[in-house]
Structure formats: C-alpha cells, structure tokens
Design a protein around this nucleic acid. Structure first.
Lengths: 124, 124, 124, 124
DNA sequence: GTGGTCTAGACCACC
DNA sequence: GTGGTCTAGACCACT
C-alpha cells in the first residue's frame, strides 16, 4: 500500500514517513493499531531496514507513533496526528497559492481548479 | 531584490533560479532585458560566481533566458516563460490540494483559505 | 573505454557524455545497468570528479540515465535513449549533407563515400 | 545575405567566415571580386568591426581571400577555395556518418536520406 | 568586460 | 560507499 519511487527526488525514508502518515490519516491504520515491523516493511518494500528504522524514529519524535520496546510501533491518537499532518500540508498549500497569486492567477481560477480536482481524483 | 536564505532547504542555485523567475514573471525584468552579470549578482548576494552560473545555465536550458557569450544573459520571451512557470507552480498546487482533500479537508475550506491569502498578501 | 582528448575542441564533459552515450547505444551498457561511479570514472580518466558529475547531471536531465542518490547512476531504457541519440546525430548529418550539396557535390558522390566509410570502419 | 544568429552556439566571427565562404563557393562572389569592406559589413550586420576584422584575417590566413592594403579584400581563386572548403565539409560529413553507422544505421538509410534532402531542400 | 570550463578540495545527506 | 552542493581560484574565448 506504500509506494516508493526512485524517481521521486525525496529521500526514501521521507517517502516511507509520508506513506505511513497517509495511512494513519485516511484511517487505513486506526489509533493504537500496530504498524508493520521494521523487518517486515523492509523486506516488503525491498528497502534497507536502517532506512525504515529512521522513518519510524522520526515519526515517533514527531508524535505520530509511539513504540513499545519488544512489542512494536503503534499509531498515536488520531486527533493530534491529523491536525499536525494537515498543518504541514497547509504550509505547502499556502506556499503554492501565494506563488500562483503573485504570478497573476486569480483566486477564482484556483478555487475552480480545486473543485475540478475534487471530482476527477484519479491519479497519484 | 532576490532573497537567499540558508534556512531554506533548497540549494542556493535553485533559490536564485526561483528569484529570477519571479522577477521575469512579475515583469521586474522585461523580455530581452539584460539580467545582472554572473559576477555582479554573485558579489551582490555574497555567493560564489560558480553557483550563480549554474543557475543561469539551467535557466537557459529550460528556456527562461538566453545568453550571448561576451555580452550577458537576457530574458526570453515572456509568453513561453510565464506559461511554463505557472504550469510548474500548478503541479505543486495540485499535489498540495490532493493531499489535503485526501486528508478530509473540504473544498470550501480550501477556497476560503485562498481568499484569505489573497488579502493578507504582504511580500512578493 | 572512453577516450578523452585535449585536441578535441569540445569541452571534456561533452566528450564524457558522448562516450557514455556511445556505450549505451552500442549495448556496452545495457538498460538499468550501473554506470561507473563519479569518483571511479574521474580517477580512471584522470579528470576532476566535478567534471564527470556535470556530464552525469546533464545526461540525467536529457533522460539518458537516472541516478539514485547513494546508490549510483543507471542507464535508462534503451528505446528512448537510442532514438533520441540518433535523432541528434541526424541533425549533424543533415547539416553536413546540405552544405555539401550546396557546394555542388552530387548525391552519388556522397552515397559512394558512405559505402566507402562503412567498409574501412575501424574504431567503434 | 549573411545570416548571424545569437542562438547559434558558434562565435560570431565563425558565422561570418562561414557566410562568406558559402557566398564564394556558390558563386555569389566571383574570383578576384571585391568583398564588402569591414566597416560596411559591420554596420550592415550590426556587429563590432573588430569581429569582422578577425573573420577577414583568418580567411586570409587560410587562403580564401587576399587583401590589398588600401584597396580592400578580394576573393581568391575559386578552385583552391572550393576544394579546401569541401574538404572541410567532408570532415564533418565523415564524422556524422561514422557515428550513425556505429549506432546501427544502415548505409541504405543514409543514402536514401541524402536523396530526400537533395529534393526538399527548404529549411535551414 | 562577458560567459564557459576546469581543478581542487571541503562538507552534507543518503544508504 | 554513493551522488549533490558549494567555495575558491585559475584559465580561456569572445566582444
């Protein structure tokens, strides 16, 4: 369910973090549900376990998950997770909007595009 | 007129490219107008000339400017420049929107935020 | 396997690009096969690593190779590579032919010369 | 009659040399005919006279023209001029052919292309 | 003066 | 180990 691409300029561990975040936010992984183990995910995605480890470590530091030594990693409460995640997304959103507005695009054009996107949501 | 920040995770040459693009798109530099020379901009921004040159080289490869050896670099025709630039910006915009929509945000919330952004627009 | 000559008026990074292209087109390097690392090739050819890296960067920008940070550079799919490469070569070919025809040479003379060249073909 | 382009990567003086050679070879300028003066050509092409001067200097060194101090520059005998010029062109032609043959193109394909070029000689 | 290339060597991020 | 960025400084070609 997590997509890793070498053509993506982002480092692998970030792609892993992003994939797990999406799963937790969209409900694919509920609160307090166990995440796949490092080894499991590593072999499943054909990625070095160290890379997965780093993703988990950072996710924990950012509060998205908590790990119980000897048991594994678990999704944190969704409320906090979601609000933190969407806050991050809004940073990118604001940046993109401001650049487009500065480039002369109208607010109506952007709003129309959003509606269009919400309908034909297919790729990516 | 171009802002360089080492807190920005992007490499310096990309920040320079972005700054110049903005200037050309917003009309700060008209078509066929001369851009600052490599050395000039380098000393102005306290950046190594090689770094500036890389920005110029890539801008030329992407069609934003054309350079005449011995004379300097000049802005290309705006039509192509602007459409290519906004197309790029829309890629980021679409990506941000899709993630937010996937995270459960409503189209109305995004549209409202755009209007809010268009009002409190401070810097270019 | 790559020949660099300072008698060649072309910059070194172009000679490197050309050499690598030839290798990939002729099958010396198959699709998805790993290219020599930047440092390796640099020391092998007694060239500064920065110069090699520029060649790699441009080859990637032109779609001939793709590079995975931390892993190395790999040859792209051959189909696109070959067609793009021969298209480039035909540009030079056409230009040379047109000049010769304009200078009064006959098509038969050129055709005969091609056959002659195809026989006395020595190096790759 | 001479075309100068900033988009052409070749230096201006080479483009001027090339333009004059073509004129002499194609008969636009007959043997012992006077070439335009440096100043004349410079103002006509909106080019620095130094650049024209360099083109003339090199053409003389290569035997294409001869200059009579106080009188101007004149085209040399056509025989020698043409053979030297076509010899140069054949170097490019051979190089282009060899690369294409090495890339797997057939001699027939090249011969066919030449005939095609000789008919629809329009652009460039 | 301009841009273009090259070298040398350092530092960083990722795997 | 890998590629990516940046600096410093030199040299060349063109105008």
């Amino acid at each position: 369910m997590i997509q890793i691409s070498n053509r993506d300029p982002r480092p692998i561990y970030e792609q892993v973090k992003d994939g797990l975040c999406k799963l937790m936010v969209s409900g694919g992984i509920g609160p307090d549900e166990k995440l796949p183990s490092v080894r499991e995910l590593a072999s499943g995605l054909s990625i070095n376990p160290n890379t997965i480890q780093r993703a988990y470590r950072e996710l924990e530091a950012e509060g998205y998950i908590y790990t119980v030594p000897g048991k594994g990693a678990f999704a944190a409460e969704q409320e906090a997770t979601i609000s933190a995640y969407t806050a991050k997304l809004y940073v990118d959103f604001d940046s993109a909007c401001q650049k487009l507005l500065a480039a002369g695009e109208s607010t109506d054009a952007l709003a129309a595009r959003i509606i269009q996107l919400s309908k034909g949501e297919s790729s990516t």
